[in-house]
Design a protein around this nucleic acid. Structure first.
Length: 431
RNA sequence: GGCCCCGUGGUGUAGCUGGCCUAACACGCCACCCUGUCAAGGUGGAGAUCGGCGGUUCGAAUCCGCUCGGGGUCGCCA
């Protein structure tokens, strides 16, 4: 008898099938016991009336791995209208000792460190695993939106010779006796590959050795990157971001419908045109509304971004807001300036519910411009990168999106580590 | 890294103006009861010396110092 997924029981009413999974919970009454068997996709209720089987069931701890053969019955009072009758259990394996916390409650009521210490168990909670499904669906949406638009998926090195992002700190590694770094971003390579395919994307882990112990930083995070050529300016990239994001949310709703339901997520609608505000205008707005002196500062503080997030919600009923035209001094050297006001850039950030989840913009594309941008610093580390421009590159731009931040905002999680499988941060290298 | 806060049975918390704490509550665990439960319910029971070290005191979970661990926030960023 082949094994059936819990979510597919509806197709087998009246038949005997085998389920396999984990004993999620059991409720013992005087004459009957209910076993909830959880598999990778869902959960099924198994009804046990045989005294011997009930006694056996009673002796099994939560998370015991089981195979259950039984008859599928459609019963109105069953949780999903379906349950398994006359079961025969086989114990596959048993947990060692008591569990550090319970999975049965609708909410996993543990502190983040406790959860993270026992991630192998915590991720089994229906709520938690639903987060993972939403993340997976979002990545799928990202890929499919870009594939549809003729982007080519690429894989770039994660062991690199030089840093890409200006301020970001790198992890040094011993590379056969030489000094190398873990890649902070596929930036250089994706730009280079625009010279080949025009449109490329990558979904991959990147590494940042920044000592930022905050709810939005990870030492290792999943970056969704895209880059495209022959653009007029950054606004074309922003349009793409909107389309991709819409596809990602749609994929969440469609491909992870049960998870979205489980988490009761409010998935935002992405407007045809995501509202945007100029960097300077944002500062003036902040100054007018809060009285705080911010005009002239070269960047927005997290508190400012939260304020702008609320403002966008009020003003446009939007969860999303572009902030456009950051000062050049705060952007990496490859950023393209605004032709009309060269101290500002053709770049943007996207705030999702007040948190920066995307950065993007137009890049320089002329070799000479790069030499000028790098003036005053050693060009040697960038020689291999600059090849692409020496051989001719079109105007291009792109963006990078932090998956964990997106999912965290979507789920209303205050800390990205809540939605990261095995987060790496300042203090945590395990599990 | 700076600043603020926290550290109590397996989990989440209360107690923390020092003695009534031989540490409380909820969940979990163990035993028994309850004819369909679904955050099931009921009765009883086991389980922590209060992160660690040192100090103040007749007396400390409660005050002080150091230390370790954690959370928030800021710098920075996805």
């Amino acid at each position: 008898m082949s094994r059936v997924w819990s979510v597919d029981l509806g197709g087998f009413v009246g038949q005997r099938v085998e389920l396999a999974g984990w004993l999620h919970h059991q409720r013992r009454l005087a004459q009957v016991s209910f076993a909830l068997v959880r598999d990778g996709r869902g959960m099924s209720q198994v009804v046990v009336t045989d005294p011997d089987v009930r006694a056996a069931l009673a002796s099994w701890a939560p998370e015991t791995v089981l195979r259950v053969e039984g008859e599928v019955a459609a019963v109105p009072q069953a949780p999903a209208g379906l349950e398994l009758h006359d079961p025969q259990f086989t114990v596959v394996s048993q947990p060692q000792g008591p569990l550090p916390f319970e999975l049965r409650r609708p909410q996993l009521d543990v502190q983040l460190p406790t959860f993270l210490d026992h991630a192998a168990l915590g991720w089994r909670h229906p709520h938690q695993r639903a987060l993972g499904r939403v993340a997976a669906a979002a990545v799928w949406g990202f890929r499919s939106a870009l594939e549809e638009r003729k982007f080519v998926e690429i894989q770039t090195p994660k062991l690199v010779a030089s840093a890409t992002e200006s301020g970001a700190n790198v992890f040094p590694v011993d590379y056969f006796g030489r000094r190398a770094f873990l890649a902070q971003s596929p930036q250089f390579y994706k730009q280079t590959m625009v010279g080949v395919y025009e449109r490329v994307y990558e979904t991959a882990t990147v590494f940042r050795a920044e000592p930022h112990d905050t709810g939005r930083h990870l030492a290792e995070y999943f970056s969704l990157d895209a880059e495209l050529g022959f653009i007029s300016d950054h606004r074309e990239v922003m349009d793409l971001v909107g389309e991709v994001l819409a596809a990602m949310f749609a994929a969440g709703v469609e491909r992870a419908a049960a998870a979205v339901d489980e988490l009761d997520l409010k998935v935002p609608k992405v407007p045809a045109k995501i509202p945007s505000i100029d960097f300077m205008a944002a500062q003036e707005l902040l100054e007018n509304e809060t009285g705080e002196k911010v005009v002239g500062e070269s960047d927005l503080a997290p508190a400012h971004e939260r304020f702008l997030g609320k403002w966008a919600e009020r003003e446009f009923a939007s969860d999303l807001l572009f902030v456009v035209g950051y000062p050049m001094v705060k952007r990496p050297f490859y950023t393209h300036p605004d032709p009309d006001r060269p101290e500002f850039s053709n770049s943007f950030d996207l705030l999702f519910r007040g948190l920066e989840i995307v950065t993007g913009g137009q890049r320089l594309h002329r070799y000479q411009d790069y030499l000028e941008a790098l003036e005053g610093q050693d060009v040697a580390p960038f020689q291999s990168y600059l090849q692409a421009f020496r051989y001719g590159m079109p105007p291009h731009g792109g963006f990078a999106m932090g998956l964990e931040r997106l999912v965290a905002r979507l789920a209303g999680a205050s800390n990205v580590r809540q939605v990261t499988l095995f987060p790496r941060d300042l203090n945590r290298l395990e599990p």
